[in-house]
Amino acid sequence: MHRFKQFSTLFLACVFCAITVAQTDSTAVSFSNPIDSTTDSVEQIVAIQIPDSKESTRIKISEELNFALYLITNEQYDNASYLLNDLSQLKDDVSQIQADSIHYLSGWLKYFSQDFYGAIDDFSKIESNEKIGTPAKFYESICYVHSNEYDAAKTILQALKCDTASLEEEFRNFQLASIALLERDYNGYDSIIANYSYKFFQFSSEQKGMELYYNDLVSYKRKSPLIAGFLSALFPGLGKLYAGYRGMPFGTMYLTLPLAAVAIEVALIAGILSPPFLVFGSLFGIFYIGNIWGSAVSVYAIEKELYAEIDHNILFDMHIPLRRIFWQ
C-alpha cells in the first residue's frame, strides 16, 4: 500500500510536470497573485515555477486588451482607464501592435471624456499603419479640430494614405470639407465636395447635412451695425429687432421709454437746468446711448451665436460617422 502511494505521488508529479510543460508551450500562464501569495492554487504554483516568457506575456496582454474592450463596451470607463494605464507601463514586454492597441483604446477613452490633448498624445504614439492606424489618424485629427488647431488636423488627414474611391478616402474628404466649413473656406469646401460619391451609407446623411450648413453660412448676411444703431436712436429697441432678436427689444423699450417719460415730465415741470432733470435726464441719456451701442454690437453677437450653433452641429456631424465606422 505504501509503495502504491509512492507510485501514485510519482505519477501525479509526472502529470503535473507534463501540464506545466504544455502550458509553457501554449503560453497559457497566469500572473501570480501579488497579494494572496499564501494560497496554493495550481495557477500560482505554475506561475511561480515557470518564469513568463515574452511570448506568453504578449498573449496575456492580448487577453487584457480584449478585457479592456469589454470594459469600454460595458461603459465601465473607470476600470478600463485603470487597466489601460497599467498596461501602458509594460513597455518592453509588448509587441508594436499591442502597444498601438493600448494607445488606441486609451486615446479613445480620453477623446470621449473630452481630454483632447491627452487623446492626441495617445493617438500620435500609434506607429502601425495597419488596421488600427487609419482610425487613429481620424480620431487624432478630430481631436485637433476640437482644440481649434485646424491646420494640424488637415495635415494629418492629408498625410493619410487611402485607396482610390474607398470609404476611407471619401470619409477623409468629408472630414476635410467639414474643416473647411469650420474655417469658412467656402472655395475649399466646394472643391472637396466635387469629389463626393455619396455612396457610403455610414455618412451620406451627414454629407447632405453639411451642405445645409454650408447654405446657411453662405446665405447669411450680417446686418449693418450702423443701421441697427440708427434705428435704436429713432426708437429704443428697434435696432435689436432689426439685428434679429425678438424678446430683447421689448425689454429695452420697457426700460428706456419710462425713463424718457420721467425726464420729459421733469423737464416740463422743473425746467431743463433743474437738478431733478439733470439726474433723470442723465439717467435716460446713459440708457439711451447704451442702447444704441448695444444695438450696434448685437449685430455681431447674433452672428457669433449663429456661427457657434452651426459649428457645434458640424462638429457633431463629424463625430457621429467616426464612431459609426470605426467603433461598432
Binding site: N33, I35, D36, T39, S41, D78, N79, Y82
Partner: peptide, 17 residues
C-alpha cells in the same frame, strides 16, 4: 481569491477591476 485578497488589502480600485 485574487479579487477578495485585493479588497482585504484595501486596493479597492484594483479589486473592483
Amino acid at each position: 481569491f485574487k479579487a477578495d485578497s485585493l479588497q482585504s488589502a484595501g486596493q479597492l480600485e484594483l479589486a473592483s477591476l
